[in-house]
């Protein structure tokens, strides 16, 4: 009889619980007291030359404006895509803990994307959902700053598209969309940047030595994605133990053509 009662009770409680579950967020912020760390290095198997991007300014109605654009943008730019150390450690790789359901709250931290000498600064950054994008134009030219979410099929979906016709213009926009974001200027097609917009704090960018560190991760086994604009993704599993550091090393083997070169 008791078993039947327990069963009825469970059914009665599960129905509203299921209804509630539909509305719960995909990531839950909790206190992490015994979190572990993932620390490591990302390398390239081969030496890869960093390409030079040629820039050709199309004549404008006013020759003065053409000259201003040529002076600001230059005639070529180093892509800064393959920035490798002497030992082939890779700068600007994104290391992302994927599918994490709970952990520390994402920080409230706005990020600035600057249009500077016809490139975006920084090239790679991490933003947090519910914080803000600060878009700045430091050039005396019209730039438009377009952010698009990279979809599975490689297409990109507009997140917003802003006109910045003045130097020192600043626009603040709320960050509503999670995922890998490509930044582009339609007027200067070589300009590009990448943002990983996250609901959680568990993502990092490699430094000039290819190093990264992600702390306070709740113990468990996670899928780690390593993304770089010029290399094919690497996905590896890693086990995080309480109050200890897991070593993570990955080597890029295949290059790929980034969006701005397609």
């Amino acid at each position: 009889m008791k078993k039947i009662l327990v069963f009825i009770l469970l059914v009665a409680l599960i129905i509203p619980a299921l209804s509630y579950a539909k509305r719960t967020p995909r990531y839950k912020a909790v206190e992490v007291t015994n979190g572990g760390t993932i620390k490591g290095t990302i390398k390239s198997e081969n030496r890869v030359d960093d390409p030079v991007i040629p820039i050709r300014v199309k004549p404008k109605g006013d020759p003065e404006e053409t000259r201003l654009e040529e002076d600001t943008c230059g005639s070529s730019q180093q892509a800064m895509m393959y920035v490798l150390s002497p030992d082939n450690e890779v700068k600007n790789a994104l290391v992302i803990v994927e599918g994490i359901t709970h952990g520390r709250a994402a920080p409230k931290k706005d990020i600035t994307i600057n249009n500077l000498r016809c490139r975006f600064e920084p090239l790679v950054s991490i933003a947090y959902v519910k914080s803000y994008y600060i878009i700045r134009n430091s050039d005396p030219l019209l730039h438009n700053t377009w952010l698009g979410k990279v979809l599975n099929a490689g297409a990109r979906r507009t997140i917003f598209n802003l006109a910045l016709p003045y130097r020192d213009q600043v626009i603040k926009k709320p960050n509503r969309v999670a995922g890998l974001i490509n930044v582009r200027c339609d007027i200067h097609p070589w300009m590009r940047a990448y943002v990983y917009s996250s609901r959680h704090p568990y993502a990092a960018i490699t430094d000039a030595g290819g190093n990264f560190e992600i702390r306070d991760i709740p113990p468990g086994t996670y899928k780690i994605r390593v993304w770089h604009e010029g290399f094919e993704d690497i996905i590896k599993e890693v086990k995080v133990k309480p109050d200890s550091t897991s070593d993570f090393r990955a080597v890029f083997t295949n290059t790929r053509r980034p969006f701005f070169m397609k």
């Binding site: 438009n144 700053t145 377009w146 979906r157 507009t158 917003f160 598209n161 802003l162 006109a163 910045l164 016709p165 003045y166 213009q169 626009i171 339609d186």
Partner: peptide
């Protein structure tokens, strides 16, 4: 509003 999905940006903030 701009025309999202095209090159036409928004001038709401400009």
């Amino acid at each position: 509003t701009g025309l999202d999905g095209t090159g036409m940006p928004s001038y709401e903030d400009s």
